[in-house]
Every structure is written in structure tokens, then in C-alpha cells.
Design a protein around this nucleic acid. Structure first.
Length: 847
RNA sequence: GCGGACGUGGCGGAAUCGGUAGACGCUGGAGACUUAAAAUCUUCUGCCCUUGGCGUGCGGGUUCGAGUCCCGCCGUCCGCACCA
């Protein structure tokens, strides 16, 4: 046994052994309890980054621990391989998106393998391959058949230079992020998935997800945004009518106007014949949508000249077009109650509309309202005829009941959630398996013609969608009538790909998306780990997709992920060149940590190739990003320190849900600990004999504590306990206990530093792999100490501590405490009035 | 604006039920080994006026006892954003 751990050699050796023996392949037919551990699969952007390393290390510790505790573990890995960066690379470098993506996958797979993750690579998948997306097309058509897919005109962000649709995130200050062109709103026919049909289920289902962070559940709840209220129709003075929705039907007698959105049909109709109205509508559209703009934007209206008849016979209300009413929410029209809604209050103030109090604010019941803000609190109804004296809640119910009885309105539920638009005018995605026929309309691609495969011969030298311009691809015969027809040339949003990959991991037959029974034997995912940036979209879409599959009878699973953990980011200090009068782009000033020179006293500088030295300003600690140039590439770090030191660092110090700051000192410390454990094992070559009960106790307390910490994903606490245990073993004299403790320590650290553990396990002549070893058993008798330290307080202040046998009686403890010299001194001759004794913990003497 | 989380040494953090605040790691100091350095080992490291006093953002409260519970502030971060 060498006295130094050669990580590079050990890493390669044991990774080879695991591969060869298929150690981490999951057996569908195992009799053991099944455990599905999953980390969010990566986008193959080129190289792995520290965020991946942290994410996958956490999942790996849990997966390895679960194996050791007797579970059949499914821990797979794959690639979220469709998406825009591949097309951007194609435009910039002239490479085919497929070649670029597959090369990246090869690189990143090799990098992940070097970290020794316990992954079942036999289940690897890439969403960009027809054997994945073909099945996705089949699922899309199942949803289509079940009426969960429909097509509708919808406004999109259109980049006129790149001739493509942009996601909202890609529009920066109204311009396309690549082209810089002013983005237009354009109406396009788009496919939608009916996620709103599941709004209630998705909202109510959150209640069952007790192992999800409360924050994520709340974010989804707000995103779905369920509101109950009254929807009803106002008769208009032009014999038309307008439908409005309100969550405050109780305030109906306080209404003083009706407002419709600028793109509401009533506004559109008026704009068509009245140039002033048209100008106002146009002005509304130009309004900014950023936070700051909305905050300061004035409430503006245009009087249509129409009036609306109050359904309960109060005065007629003027109808306005208003810039603050959204067409997308509710009915696109509201009634305004200025006294009890802040926006209505501002609007009414500007246009001198009546402001009438209908909810008492404490003892203020006067109909005249002269506060400078709306009153939105609870109270008793006033100035509201038959509603007077009711609470807000009672009045809401009363008005809804009355509306339903009289037939002019009904209680309804409205959601903030909209249906999921999935059409993308892009090449590198799953082709939408629909054919458009002049005679037959939309025709699904017949099952036997799936997959609809992307054409390889595409070019990106001109803007626009290569699928649409391809000379032959879109021309097909209509499956229904045989006439010339056209394929849909849009592809699916890549969030569709990630909405079911965890099911395909569990079961991947060739002839169908998955086998219902096999998939259900693994699902739901017991522990899902990923970044909080997916708290809403990905996690909501995957929940929807799973429920939609249940709806069509393909899978009996309600929730895909019963446990969710959102890990923190990996951060690093930032560095900037100290050039006072720099007039170039500020981004040019950032300097990568690897380009710094450390001078005397830790002073940082940047040496130019010409030999000049520029001082450096240390910036904030921020998420590693290319733009701030504060990334640290994992690969050379693994080369230098080995996989185990990197893994150990990822688990140390910071709680997993918080940010972890990368530091040179930190990785050095981890490397030292790996070597220290190795020396400990090495020195144990000649074991002593005899028992060491104190060490046995520490060991068993560590086994129980570390198990609890890993199960709670509190890796930083488990790491601290392992440091303590290692120190305790180092300090212990040779004994059989000590020799056993070393063997046990190896099993306890095996999930975290598996290469070291295997190497040491083999060196100590143990049979088999430590990866297949069982987690050590705990002897409950050794968990309790026979001696305890008892704190002695006088008036709540610590004065002494006593070491006593565990289980000493209150009288014994009290007597011992009162006998303490330090206590006598602290009492200063006073007589104790009261003595509180908490057995085995503390005594508090009150004087 | 609405919703939520958090605030503990020089730093990351621990304290699971209201019971010895600061485990463990990093940084730093001192020493041992060494011709020397690295590595390693030992030891100290919250603050101060050190038989003691003060300390968990600030101010109150409950309690024998509060980092932990309650009330009111201040600060930081995150999400949503004219959602009727």
C-alpha cells in the first residue's frame, strides 16, 4: 500500500471496474424496494460546469447511500439535446446542429464519467434522436386524440431580421437579442396544450407534495393563480353587451365605470370608425411592459360614449377603454369600484368619476370617500341597499346567488395560467406530427409513419426556419385523401422533451414510449434534484404531462416527483481590471481567475503579453458565468486533485440549498482530507487488540447521525461528522475497535469519495466492491453515553458544568450543583428560591 | 406594490423539542519535525476593561431559561408584477 493516494490512477481503475461489472445498472425485476433518484438532465452546451458537478454529486451520494441501504436504485443520465444554442452554433460556425450537439454530448459524457457517478449509462437517452422524439410525437398525437391539443391564432414576438419567433426572455428592450431588430407582435397559428384543463388538479395536487420546498409550491400556486368570483353581462346603450369578471361582487353598488382592454372587441370596433379611439388603442399598445414602466405608468382611459346598465338597478355606468385592463385575463373587461381598488381609484381620480364607499373602514360609513388611497380591507357593507350590514364574504355569496337566480351572471373561477403554446418556428426540435391538407384540414401523421424525422440537409446561411424552406421535406401526400399536402413545419417547445424523459428512463421499449407497468414500478421519482430556476415552467409542464398521460389512460401516476430539492448555485469572486477612464464596453474589463497573477500580500494583477501589469479590483461573489468570466472549469481541477476531492468539496461547508463559493483553499482542504483518510487506513495495517468502548460509541453515533444527514440531504452536516469521526479514530490507541472503526469509516464515506473507499477497501483485503457493501448497522445500545455533562446555571447564567452518570435523579443533580464552589460563589450567600432540574441536561438555580 | 425567505466570529456554517451559542471546515498565530522548504503533527484563534463582563441585525415582550416563541422596526436576497 502506497502512503499517498494516487487519485488519477484509482479513479480510472475503479471507474473501469464499475463499468465492466455494470455495478450501477438498475434491474427492473429486482425484489428489493425500488428507489428512483434523478437530477435534472443537462443541456449539452459543450462542457460540464461546476453547477453540474454539484448537482450530480448530491444525487450520487443519495443514490449510492440508497444502494447501500438495500434499495434497487434507478439513477440515470441523459441529454436535453434540442434547443437554440445548437442553431446559433450552426449560424455562427457553419456546423450542423446535430453534429455540434452529439460532439458536445460525447465530451460531457466523458467528463461526467471522470467524476465517478453511480449512473446507469445503459439507459442514456438524448432527446434529439428519433428513438426519443418519435415517441414524443406519438404522445402528442395521443393528447390530440383526447382533445388536449388545439390550434389557435396567437400573438408572438417576431424578429423581422432573423425571421423567427422569439421567446419573451429573448426580447431585450423591445429588440431581438441576436439581430437587435425591433420586435413585432405578429399573429400566428400555434399549437396549444390544454394545461388549463388541469389547473385545479395541478393546484390541489401541490397539497400532496410535502417533500417539495414550500417556496416552489407557493410559486406554482401563484403562477396558476386561481381566483373565484362573479362573471356577468352588462347591457350597453347600443344594444350590445359586455361581459366582466370580478372577485369583488360585494362592491357592485360602488361601481362607477366599466373599462375594457385596448384589444377588446368593443375597443376594436370603436377604433375602426373613430380615429381618436384608434389613436388611443395604438398608444396603449406602445406602453412599456417592464416593471419600472408599469409602476409609474399613468392610468389612461378613452370614453366610448356608451353606458352600461347596472344589473341591480343602480345608476348607468360610463364605458371606457383603459390601458390598465388586460385582454388575456378574465374577460378583458372590468367594472371599476374606485373606493375599494387602487387602480380604479387612480383612474376615477383622473377622470373625476364618483368614488363611493360601500365597505365600512372601521366606523367610517359615509358614502363620500376622501382618502388618498383605496380601502381594500375587510369590513361591513354600507350604502349598498339590501347588502348593508353583511360582511364582505357574505355579500360576495349573496350577490353571486342573486345573479344566478335572476340569470344575469354566475359564480366562476378564473386562472392566471394560460394554455401552453408549444409551436416554435425552429429547426432543432421535435417536428410536430401534423399534416395540413386543403381538403381534410389538420390530419395527424399515422402511427406507422412515425417518427417524423428531421431532414439532415439543411442550411442556416439565410434567416428563417430551415424546415419551412427545405425543398422537399414538407411536401407529403395527405394520409386521409392522398392529395398533395404540407407538413407542419414548426417544432415543439423543448420543454415538451423534458416533460417525460424521466418516464422513458424508467422504461424504454422500442415500439412505444414506455411500458405502463414497468414505468409505474419505478415512478414517481422519489428524489428529484435541480436548480430553482425550473421551479415553475419545467416542473409545472412535467406535472401536467404526467396528469395528461393519466387522463388518456397511459400511466397511473398522478405526480411525477414526490421529493424535490432545489440546490444552490456555485459562485466565485469576480475580478475587474482597474482602468479608471476605460471607454470600451464594461464587459471587457472582467478577468478570469486563471489569468490573474498573485503578488506579495495577495495583491492581484493582470500581466499583459507586452509585460505591463494592470491592477485588479476584487468584485462581488456571484454565480459563475461566462459574462463575468468568473467560471472555474471542473476538468483541470479533476486532473489536479482527483474526483473525490472535487466531490468532497461540493458537499462541504455550505448547506446544499444555499450558494457554494468556489475557492482554491477549499479544494486544497478537501484534497488534504482525502490524503488524511488514506494515511489513516494505511497506518491501520497492524491492528491492535482489545475493545475501546468510547470509540465504539463515537462510531455508532456517527453511523446513525450521518445516515440521518444524508437522508435529509444535509451533506454539510454529514461531512462535519465524518471529520470528527476521522479525528477520533486518529487519536485512538490501537485496538480491535479501532480496526473495525476504520472499515466502518470507509463505508460511511463511500457515497462521497467512492474511489478512495474502493481502493482502501481492496487494500484492506475486503471481498467485493464497497459500492456493493451494506451500510453499517447501528447498535442502539452504543448510541447513548453512560456519562453526561450537565450545565449548571445560576439565574440563567452558566457557572459550572458537572459530569454525572446518565439517569441521575433530580435530587442527586441538585445536590451536586449546590455543592459546586463556583455556584456558591455566584450565589453570594443568597438562598436559592427555586431550582429547575432538567435530567441529563442542566440545572438552573434561581436566587 | 404583492408574496416569500433569511440576518450567528475575519469567512462558510453548526446548535433537530425553548436548556452549556460558535461543532466542523477555511483563514490566521505559536510550536515540533527538517540543513532548509513543502508535506505532516501539536496547540491557540467571538469581543472586552479577564476571579469577571458582553455577545446570534435593532427595540420591546413571554419564560427559571430565548439564536430558537410573540410584537414592532431595520437590512439583504428571491419570486410575481396593472391578474380585476
Amino acid at each position: 500500500m502506497a502512503n499517498r493516494f494516487n487519485a488519477l490512477k484509482a479513479d480510472a481503475h475503479w471507474q473501469g471496474v464499475w463499468d465492466e461489472r455494470r455495478t450501477f445498472a438498475a434491474d427492473d425485476h429486482s425484489a428489493k424496494p425500488k428507489s428512483y433518484v434523478l437530477e435534472m438532465f443537462p443541456y449539452p452546451s459543450g462542457k460540464i460546469h461546476m453547477g453540474h458537478v454539484r448537482n450530480y454529486t448530491m444525487g450520487d451520494v443519495l443514490a449510492r447511500y440508497r444502494r447501500m441501504t438495500g434499495h434497487e436504485v434507478l439513477h440515470p443520465m441523459g441529454w436535453d439535446a434540442f434547443g437554440m444554442p445548437a442553431e446559433n452554433a450552426a449560424m455562427e460556425k457553419g456546423v450542423h446542429p446535430g453534429n455540434w450537439t452529439r460532439a458536445n454530448i460525447a465530451t460531457m459524457k466523458a467528463q461526467l464519467k471522470r467524476l465517478g457517478f453511480a449512473l446507469d449509462w445503459s439507459r442514456e437517452l438524448a432527446t434529439c434522436e428519433p428513438d426519443y422524439y418519435g415517441h414524443e410525437q406519438a404522445l402528442f398525437l395521443e393528447f390530440y386524440k383526447a382533445g388536449l391539443v388545439y390550434r389557435k391564432e396567437s400573438a408572438v414576438n417576431w424578429d423581422p431580421v432573423d425571421m423567427t419567433v422569439l421567446a419573451n426572455e429573448q426580447v431585450i428592450d423591445g429588440r431581438g437579442w441576436r439581430s437587435g431588430a425591433l420586435v413585432e407582435k405578429r399573429k400566428l397559428s400555434q399549437w396549444f396544450l390544454k394545461i388549463t384543463q388541469f389547473a385545479d388538479e395541478l393546484l390541489d395536487g401541490l397539497g400532496s407534495l410535502e417533500h417539495w420546498p414550500a417556496k416552489v409550491r407557493l410559486m406554482q400556486e401563484n403562477w396558476i393563480g386561481r381566483s373565484r368570483g362573479l362573471q356577468f353581462r352588462f347591457a350597453l346603450s347600443n344594444d350590445g353587451s359586455v361581459e366582466v369578471f370580478t372577485t369583488r361582487p360585494d362592491t357592485i353598488y360602488g361601481a362607477s365605470f366599466v373599462a375594457v382592454a385596448a384589444d377588446h372587441p368593443i375597443a376594436q370596433a370603436l377604433a375602426a370608425e373613430n380615429p381618436d379611439a384608434a389613436a388611443f388603442v395604438e398608444r396603449c399598445k406602445q406602453g412599456g411592459t417592464t416593471a419600472a414602466e408599469l409602476e409609474t405608468q399613468e392610468k389612461l382611459g378613452f370614453d366610448t360614449g356608451l353606458t352600461a346598465a347596472h344589473p341591480l338597478g343602480a345608476v348607468d355606468l360610463p364605458v371606457y377603454i383603459a390601458n390598465f385592463v388586460l385582454m388575456e385575463y378574465g374577460t378583458g373587461a372590468v367594472f371599476g369600484v374606485p373606493a375599494h381598488d387602487q387602480r380604479d381609484f387612480e383612474f376615477a381620480t383622473k377622470y373625476r368619476l364618483p368614488i363611493r364607499r360601500v365597505v365600512a373602514d372601521g366606523d367610517r360609513t359615509d358614502p363620500t370617500f376622501d382618502d388618498d388611497a383605496a380601502y381594500i380591507g375587510a369590513g361591513v357593507l354600507v350604502n349598498s341597499r339590501e347588502l348593508d350590514g353583511m360582511s364582505v364574504e357574505d355579500a360576495k355569496r349573496a350577490v353571486i346567488a342573486r345573479a344566478e337566480e335572476a340569470g344575469w351572471g354566475e359564480g366562476t373561477t378564473v386562472y392566471r395560467l394560460r394554455d401552453w403554446g408549444v409551436s416554435r418556428q425552429r429547426y432543432w426540435g421535435t417536428p410536430i406530427p401534423i399534416i395540413h391538407c386543403a381538403a381534410c384540414g389538420e390530419v395527424p401523421v399515422p402511427r406507422e409513419q412515425l417518427p417524423v424525422v428531421l431532414p439532415e440537409d439543411v442550411s442556416f446561411d439565410v434567416p428563417g426556419n430551415p424546415l419551412d424552406r427545405h425543398p422537399t421535406w414538407k411536401h407529403v401526400a395527405c394520409p386521409s385523401c392522398g392529395a398533395d399536402a404540407l407538413r407542419d413545419t414548426d417544432t415543439l417547445d423543448t420543454f415538451a422533451d423534458s416533460s417525460w424523459y424521466f418516464i422513458r428512463f424508467a422504461s424504454a421499449p422500442e415500439d412505444k414510449p414506455f411500458d405502463k407497468a414497468v414505468a409505474a414500478s419505478w415512478l414517481p421519482v422519489g428524489q428529484y434534484i435541480g436548480g430553482v430556476e425550473h421551479a415553475i415552467l419545467h416542473l409545472l409542464y412535467a406535472r401536467f404531462w404526467t396528469r395528461a398521460l393519466r387522463h388518456v389512460g397511459m400511466l397511473d401516476v398522478a405526480e411525477p416527483f414526490t421529493g424535490l430539492f432545489t440546490q444552490g448555485m456555485v459562485t466565485h469572486e469576480t475580478y475587474r481590471l482597474d482602468i479608471p477612464d476605460h471607454d470600451g464596453p464594461p464587459a471587457a474589463l472582467w478577468v478570469s481567475p486563471s489569468d490573474l497573477t498573485v503578488g506579495e500580500g495577495g495583491v492581484l494583477s493582470f500581466e499583459t503579453p507586452e509585460g505591463a501589469s494592470i491592477p485588479i479590483i476584487r468584485g462581488r461573489v456571484e454565480k459563475m458565468s461566462k459574462s463575468k468570466k468568473n467560471t472555474v472549469d471542473p476538468e483541470p481541477i479533476v486532473d489536479q486533485y482527483g474526483a473525490d476531492a472535487v466531490r468532497w468539496f461540493m458537499l462541504s461547508d455550505s448547506p446544499p440549498e444555499r450558494d457554494l463559493e468556489w475557492s482554491e483553499n477549499g479544494i486544497e482542504g478537501s484534497w488534504r482530507f482525502v490524503q488524511r483518510m488514506w494515511r489513516l487506513v494505511d497506518a491501520e495495517a497492524q491492528p491492535g487488540d482489545g475493545a475501546d468502548v468510547a470509540l465504539d460509541r463515537k462510531l455508532h453515533q456517527a453511523i446513525a447521525g450521518i445516515a440521518a444527514d444524508i437522508e435529509a440531504l444535509s451533506f454539510n452536516k454529514a461531512v462535519a461528522k465524518l471529520y470528527e469521526l476521522t479525528s477520533a479514530i486518529e487519536k485512538a490507541a490501537p485496538s480491535t475497535s479501532r480496526a473495525q472503526a476504520v472499515d466502518t469509516l470507509l463505508r460511511l464515506v463511500a457515497p462521497m469519495v467512492p474511489h478512495l473507499a474502493e481502493e482502501a477497501w481492496a487494500a484492506r483485503g475486503k471481498a467485493g466492491l464497497i459500492s456493493d457493501a451494506a451500510w453499517p448497522d447501528v447498535d442502539p445500545a452504543l448510541l447513548v453515553d453512560d456519562e453526561v455533562t450537565i450545565a449548571v446555571q445560576v439565574n440563567g447564567k452558566l457557572r459550572d458544568t458537572l459530569v454525572m452518570v446518565k439517569g441521575a435523579t433530580k435530587d442527586m443533580i441538585e445536590a451536586a450543583a449546590l455543592a459546586s464552589e463556583k455556584v456558591v460563589r455566584a450565589l453570594e450567600g443568597k438562598t436559592p428560591r427555586k431550582v429547575i432540574v432538567v435530567p441529563d441536561r442542566l440545572v438552573n438555580i434561581v436566587a
